[in-house]
């Protein structure tokens, strides 16, 4: 990674930290205004806090993906407003698709300050490589990365075990010190994928530490196997969610 890129990434983090009182407050205000609630919020935040206390190194957080604001709701569910401000290091780096937010300057600024690293889907090899280097750099800093292992919102509204992305496997293969946290988030009314959850949505959120285990061999096969195991367990969490609804 070039020195300039490293400095720019560091600058993004510092500016984000300076602005976190404003950006986190805005995000929390948004969640409140939309009437979103998460069941057992306090318990979930305590659970996440325990996980961070047990391991202060880099986490790769892998959720299911149904709406465009999942990462925001997950951040709200994982950390209190005070924790966002006092432990900005624990706020996850996120990888949104650039075209989804860069048309709106305000949104682009908020995303920049909220630790977003834009992805150009189908972009140049150099661009993808630069993004991977940035991700590895933030993991080297001991910070967390939010990666949707499905690679996009699930078109069937269920975990897609056939057509998922292997990016998360690459991070696990390259960065052996990372731990994996799985998050399953679903609103009561989320019957299909969409842009935003409905007003007043009530979410169920479950978090768990996942050990992907070892994989023999090397290279792309290892990455695919890690990603497969993560997606498989997420599908298991989804089954548990629906079993609990019944």
């Amino acid at each position: 990674m070039e020195r300039r890129e490293r400095l720019l990434l560091g600058l993004q983090y510092v500016l984000g930290q300076i602005a976190v009182v404003l950006t986190a407050s805005l995000c929390f205000l948004f969640v409140r205004l939309m009437g979103y609630r998460i069941r057992d919020l306090k318990r979930i935040r305590n659970e996440v806090k325990r996980m961070y206390r047990a391991y202060d190194g880099p986490w790769i957080v892998c959720p299911n993906h149904l709406t465009m604001i999942d990462s925001l709701v997950i951040s709200y569910g994982m950390l209190s407003l005070a924790d966002h401000i006092l432990h900005f290091r624990r706020v996850l780096w996120n990888l949104p698709e650039r075209k989804n937010f860069q048309r709106n300057l305000f949104l682009a600024l908020i995303c920049y300050l909220a630790k977003c690293l834009p992805v150009d889907r189908g972009g140049s090899r150099e661009g993808i490589q630069r993004l991977l280097e940035k991700c590895c750099r933030v993991l080297d800093w001991g910070q967390g990365l939010l990666v949707f292992p499905e690679g996009g919102r699930s078109r069937t509204a269920r975990i897609n075990q056939e057509n998922f992305s292997y990016g998360v496997g690459r991070f696990l293969d390259e960065k052996s010190g990372c731990r994996v946290m799985l998050v399953y988030l679903r609103g009561d009314g989320q019957e299909r994928y969409g842009t935003m959850p409905r007003l007043g949505e009530r979410f169920t959120m479950t978090v768990e530490v996942f050990d992907p285990g070892g994989v023999d061999g090397g290279g792309l096969r290892v990455q695919r196997e890690y990603a497969r195991r993560i997606v498989e367990r997420l599908a298991g969490m989804e089954d548990e969610y629906f079993a609990g609804c019944g």
């Binding site: 189908g122 690679g151 057509n163 998922f164 992305s165 292997y166 792309l220 990455q223 695919r224």
Partner: peptide, 10 residues
């Protein structure tokens, strides 16, 4: 898609 490209390479 990029994931399937990985499958193709494997």
């Amino acid at each position: 898609n990029s994931a399937r490209l990985v499958d193709i390479i494997i």
